[in-house]
Amino acid sequence: MTREEKIEAYILGTLSESDHLAFEQEISGDESLQIEVENMRTLVMGIETFQLKNKLKDVALKIDQEKEEKQTKVVSLNRLKYLAIAASIIAIASFGVWFLPDAPTDELLVSDYFYTDPGLPTKMGVNDQYEFYEGMVSYKSGDYKAALERWEGLEGGIGLDTLTYYKSMAHLNEKNWSQFMEEINKLSDESPFAEKADWYRLQAFLEMEDYERAKIILPSIKREGVEDIQKFLESR
């Protein structure tokens, strides 16, 4: 198995448990390998997202075609009524723009800088990893409570760091701050998830308005958007 094939198998969850754990150890000690894994993960996620978008387009096209077949007549608006409605909308919009106060410049929208980790591509039918990937299906559908129930007490079938990381992500998305911190702090500095862990710790501190701890962790993070967050924290 080539290095690229092993990375792909690791991301797709098709490695055996022993090979998965061994490869995680290899990743933790090789910075270039960590970068390759992240690049491959981004590629795999992109392919999966592209396929999903195509499926959704096909469904939307079918719905549009059915609507066109069922539609027997088109009701047209009287031109004057249309102009009156349009004028009303413009007037209301102008009024709103004129009277609404400007958004405070010192506010920070966390959603502008942080996104929900999309999870791993689901790989069903792998016996020793079945429970983990059943939980991942729930995670990716946004049912984080169901994912956590699946993962509770789970020890085998997937790398321990991987399980710990996604349990922490589920708690983060549920805003279970103490449980999130408990899980994320189990990851060592040598973990392949260490950089992501710091990033999401920062998100949690910002959402909790714990700006002092956010200031402490910020210097260790090298990501786009850090400068804006730093300016925001300096005003606090």
Results as ranks from 00 to 15, higher is better:
residue 52 L to W: 15
residue 45 M to T: 14
residue 141 S to V: 10
residue 186 K to N: 06
residue 43 L to K: 06
residue 107 E to Y: 01
residue 80 L to D: 09
residue 4 E to A: 13
residue 97 V to R: 14
residue 143 D to I: 08
residue 60 A to T: 14
residue 105 T to S: 11
residue 200 Y to T: 08
residue 11 I to Q: 04
residue 41 R to A: 07
residue 235 S to L: 08
residue 218 L to G: 00
residue 217 I to K: 00
residue 160 L to V: 14
residue 199 W to Y: 07
residue 35 I to Y: 11
residue 113 Y to R: 02
residue 170 A to S: 13
residue 225 G to E: 08
residue 107 E to C: 00
residue 68 E to Q: 10
residue 120 L to W: 04
residue 13 G to A: 09
residue 178 S to E: 15
residue 174 E to C: 06
residue 134 E to N: 02
residue 211 Y to P: 08
residue 83 L to N: 14
residue 87 A to R: 09
residue 55 K to P: 04
residue 221 I to P: 11
residue 119 G to L: 00
residue 153 G to S: 09
residue 191 S to V: 01
residue 23 F to G: 14
residue 50 F to C: 06
residue 178 S to A: 12
residue 209 E to Q: 05
residue 143 D to N: 11
residue 9 A to Y: 14
residue 221 I to Q: 06
residue 108 L to V: 00
residue 149 E to Q: 03
residue 146 A to T: 14
residue 51 Q to F: 15
residue 146 A to Y: 06
residue 68 E to L: 08
residue 185 N to K: 02
residue 33 L to G: 09
residue 179 Q to C: 07
residue 62 K to C: 02
residue 164 T to L: 07
residue 194 A to M: 08
residue 12 L to C: 14
residue 1 M to S: 13
residue 129 Q to N: 01
residue 97 V to F: 13
residue 191 S to G: 00
residue 52 L to I: 15
residue 171 H to M: 07
residue 213 R to S: 04
residue 188 S to E: 01
residue 16 S to I: 03
residue 45 M to F: 09
residue 51 Q to A: 13
residue 66 E to L: 10
residue 51 Q to E: 12
residue 184 I to W: 04
residue 31 E to H: 10
residue 216 I to V: 03
residue 180 F to H: 00
residue 171 H to C: 12
residue 137 V to Q: 02
residue 2 T to W: 03
residue 71 Q to C: 10
residue 36 E to P: 05
residue 145 K to V: 02
residue 13 G to C: 12
residue 222 K to H: 15
residue 18 S to D: 12
residue 179 Q to D: 13
residue 13 G to V: 15
residue 59 V to R: 02
residue 176 N to E: 07
residue 65 Q to K: 04
residue 132 F to Y: 00
residue 84 A to N: 12
residue 151 W to Y: 05
residue 34 Q to V: 11
residue 164 T to Y: 09
residue 84 A to G: 09
residue 71 Q to E: 07
residue 168 S to P: 03
residue 70 K to A: 06
residue 232 F to T: 04
residue 50 F to W: 13
residue 10 Y to W: 12
residue 157 G to Q: 02
residue 22 A to C: 10
residue 156 G to W: 03
residue 56 L to D: 11
residue 20 H to K: 02
residue 8 E to M: 12
residue 170 A to R: 05
residue 214 A to V: 12
residue 60 A to L: 09
residue 24 E to T: 11
residue 212 E to P: 10
residue 48 E to Q: 14
residue 136 M to P: 05
residue 97 V to W: 13
residue 66 E to W: 04
residue 106 D to V: 10
residue 41 R to K: 13
residue 210 D to K: 03
residue 123 K to S: 05
residue 161 D to E: 03
residue 12 L to W: 11
residue 59 V to Y: 06
residue 175 K to L: 01
residue 202 L to E: 04
residue 43 L to T: 14
residue 15 L to D: 10
residue 162 T to W: 07
residue 133 Y to S: 00
residue 202 L to W: 05
residue 85 I to Q: 05
residue 32 S to A: 11
